[in-house]
Nucleic acid binder design. Sequence first.
DNA 1: ACCCCTATGTATAATTA
DNA 2: TTAATTATACATAGGGG
Lengths: 204, 204
Amino acid sequence: MIRKKVKLAYITNDSSRKATYKKRNKGLMKRMSELSTLCGINACAIMYSPYESQLEVWPSPIGGQQVLSKFKMILEMEQRKNMVNQESFLSQRTVKLLNEKISNIDKRMDAFAMAPLYTQRASSSSSSSMVALPLMTMVMPKAMPRIGTEDIMQSDVNNMDPMKRQQWIMGLMNKNNNNNPQTQVGGDWMMFQFGDNINPNNGH
Amino acid sequence: MIRKKVKLAYITNDSSRKATYKKRNKGLMKRMSELSTLCGINACAIMYSPYESQLEVWPSPIGGQQVLSKFKMILEMEQRKNMVNQESFLSQRTVKLLNEKISNIDKRMDAFAMAPLYTQRASSSSSSSMVALPLMTMVMPKAMPRIGTEDIMQSDVNNMDPMKRQQWIMGLMNKNNNNNPQTQVGGDWMMFQFGDNINPNNGH
DNA sequence: ACCCCTATGTATAATTA
DNA sequence: TTAATTATACATAGGGG
């Protein structure tokens, strides 16, 4: 069991590359969750792995909803305050971006639910028609709770989200009613991670 | 120098929290670069840290351009092949998303160049008007090089990118002509990271 | 605020089941 | 194939300049 000094180059062997990917990706997620709790950062991660054929949400899809709702709420509060400054402009753009992202994910999930595009072996990287799906990770500093808007944000989750996001969440929930942090939804991998909700010791 | 077992909770002390954040974030980025090289994944990371007041691009802003151009090229090749299937549909959406993201970043950088919004101390989390900027990380599997399109993609970088992305890159380059992987642009932090270009041992 | 050091916790490569 | 094991490489907490 002599461990080599980790040769930093592409692992040609398919199975060992996949194994490395899974291990290291797991470690990466744990690290992110730790950074999240330690430094007070809300983390939301969506991941599409080329090595997995399932979609994973961690620790729960609801957390992602909450992060996004929170972010939207922040924007709307700013608008109510008529703060038409650069900050609100920037956050508007960001919220728009996040909404598109969610819509995008929603579309993806529909597609994958209908017909899995990636019935993919680890060695299928030579497929010419395959377009790699991106792994996306978002971590956002939770600076807002200090301004006393937690309750409003909470209600926001329940009654003011666009239908597509609700559908997206419901689509996840209908297929996954357990509390298992790794829930399989179908066709791809997706992960969410939040500094508020995580139990950082569940991996050990 | 007895090292405690890392209490997994929010670090209340501002300076030590910031120190931890910087250390761990650096480690996170290194991990991502390693995953990138080891498993053949192209990585592109944009980071906005609440603890930094400068924008950082690593290892170079050009890499981000290349990743995005590559992705766009993939999409266009698919379109030429008249592959109107779900895969191209999904990748279209993703490219659109990335374009918006770049545009968003462009806007941010313009704004920050004009007037730095975040002259922010580590303890300024109680500021009520501040909207947290997200840290965003994107990693995408590089599945395309195997289909022999490297040359086309390369030319794509030079002559077919939208003006806004070019402006974005140029805006970075004009202010940063050195090869220092950590280039300060102003007002915020941004990071790019690429599996193709990284030198994973530069941290040791 | 750094940067550097190093003891120690943690991730993980290689291996076995 | 994945799961568990374990030795070792690596990350980093705490401390000193």
